Amino acid sequence: SDLEELEKFAKTFKQRRIKLGFTQGDVGLAMGKLYGNDFSQTTISRFEALNLSFKNMCKLKPLLEKWLNDAESSP
């Protein structure tokens, strides 16, 4: 289901973010620079904790996926 997908992604996202050495705040700032939407550390934290509305989670997921792919592919 969509919800299970989101839960899986949130977990994976957190693990990969930590492995890359980024804080939640770093992610929020980087996404602001890249996509012009500033995200607070709290928002990233709540995403990882599945603590946002389903609609908000769905809106954030593609942006976070893109950020993660970019972060992992940059030298």
Rank of each mutant, 00 (worst) to 15 (best):
73 S>F: 08
5 E>T: 13
59 K>H: 11
35 Y>S: 13
51 N>I: 05
67 W>I: 02
47 F>W: 03
59 K>F: 15
67 W>G: 01
70 D>G: 12
60 L>E: 00
60 L>V: 11
74 S>Q: 11
51 N>D: 12
46 R>S: 12
61 K>T: 04
28 G>R: 04
29 L>G: 09
72 E>K: 06
18 I>H: 06
75 P>E: 11
29 L>W: 06
67 W>V: 04
75 P>S: 08
65 E>T: 06
72 E>Q: 11
45 S>C: 14
71 A>G: 05
62 P>E: 06
41 Q>A: 14
58 C>I: 13
66 K>E: 08
5 E>Q: 12
73 S>Y: 06
26 D>L: 04
59 K>Y: 07
66 K>T: 12
65 E>L: 09
18 I>V: 11
22 F>S: 03
5 E>G: 09
66 K>L: 08
72 E>V: 09
73 S>K: 09
47 F>D: 00
57 M>D: 02
48 E>I: 00
46 R>G: 12
59 K>E: 15
5 E>H: 14
29 L>C: 14
53 S>L: 01
17 R>H: 02
56 N>D: 13
46 R>E: 14
70 D>N: 08
69 N>F: 15
58 C>V: 11
43 T>N: 04
73 S>Q: 09
70 D>C: 04
58 C>K: 09
37 N>F: 06
48 E>Y: 00
74 S>H: 15
64 L>Y: 04
61 K>N: 01
69 N>H: 15
71 A>W: 08
50 L>H: 15
28 G>T: 15
29 L>K: 14
52 L>M: 12
73 S>R: 06
46 R>Y: 07
45 S>W: 06
53 S>Y: 00
50 L>P: 02
44 I>K: 00
59 K>T: 12
60 L>A: 07
45 S>F: 04
45 S>A: 13
64 L>M: 07
63 L>N: 11
52 L>A: 06
62 P>Y: 01
73 S>H: 11
70 D>K: 09
51 N>W: 03
75 P>F: 05
65 E>W: 04
71 A>F: 09
51 N>V: 07
46 R>N: 13
54 F>H: 14
19 K>S: 15
18 I>F: 03
66 K>P: 02
1 S>F: 08
53 S>F: 01
42 T>N: 14
16 R>L: 15
68 L>M: 06
56 N>R: 13
60 L>I: 08
52 L>N: 02
74 S>P: 09
45 S>K: 13
68 L>A: 06
51 N>H: 15
47 F>R: 00
73 S>C: 07
56 N>A: 13
33 K>W: 03
74 S>N: 06
18 I>Q: 15
50 L>Y: 08
24 Q>S: 08
68 L>F: 03
74 S>L: 06
44 I>P: 00
67 W>A: 02
57 M>H: 01
67 W>T: 01
50 L>T: 12
65 E>I: 14
56 N>E: 12
44 I>W: 01
62 P>W: 03
37 N>H: 14
57 M>W: 03
54 F>G: 09
15 Q>A: 15
61 K>A: 09
69 N>S: 13
55 K>G: 13
57 M>P: 01
52 L>Y: 05
44 I>T: 01
59 K>M: 09
25 G>Y: 15
51 N>F: 02
66 K>C: 08
41 Q>L: 06
65 E>R: 04
68 L>Y: 03
16 R>G: 06
12 T>Q: 13
41 Q>H: 12
55 K>T: 12
60 L>W: 08
55 K>C: 10
68 L>G: 02
35 Y>M: 15
45 S>Y: 07
41 Q>G: 13
69 N>M: 12
73 S>P: 08
37 N>L: 12
47 F>H: 00
71 A>D: 03
56 N>H: 13
58 C>G: 10
66 K>F: 04
45 S>P: 10
65 E>N: 09
58 C>M: 12
58 C>A: 14
59 K>R: 10
62 P>N: 04
61 K>D: 00
25 G>C: 15
68 L>I: 13
50 L>M: 11
72 E>C: 08
9 F>S: 05
69 N>C: 06
46 R>V: 02
5 E>M: 13
54 F>K: 13
62 P>V: 06
25 G>V: 05
67 W>S: 01
18 I>E: 15
58 C>L: 11
53 S>N: 14
49 A>Q: 15
5 E>P: 04
56 N>P: 04
41 Q>F: 10
56 N>T: 15
47 F>E: 00
53 S>V: 02
49 A>H: 13
68 L>Q: 03
56 N>C: 11
37 N>Y: 05
67 W>P: 01
58 C>E: 10
26 D>R: 03
49 A>L: 04
52 L>P: 00
21 G>Q: 02
50 L>E: 05
56 N>G: 09
53 S>H: 04
44 I>N: 00
22 F>R: 03
53 S>M: 02
74 S>I: 10
63 L>Q: 07
72 E>F: 04
53 S>K: 07
55 K>F: 10
59 K>Q: 10
58 C>Y: 13
44 I>Y: 02
64 L>I: 04
22 F>E: 02
66 K>N: 11
57 M>G: 05
48 E>C: 00
9 F>L: 02
62 P>Q: 05
64 L>V: 04
58 C>F: 13
35 Y>D: 11
70 D>A: 09
21 G>M: 02
70 D>S: 08
49 A>I: 02
65 E>H: 09
38 D>G: 03
72 E>D: 10
61 K>W: 05
48 E>G: 00
46 R>C: 03
72 E>M: 06
6 L>F: 04
74 S>Y: 07
31 M>T: 02
73 S>E: 10
47 F>I: 02
44 I>Q: 00
37 N>E: 12
67 W>F: 12
61 K>C: 04
72 E>W: 05
75 P>T: 15
65 E>D: 10
63 L>R: 11
37 N>V: 11
8 K>G: 06
68 L>P: 01
60 L>R: 02
55 K>L: 12
61 K>L: 04
74 S>D: 08
50 L>S: 14
19 K>A: 03
3 L>F: 09
72 E>N: 12
5 E>V: 07
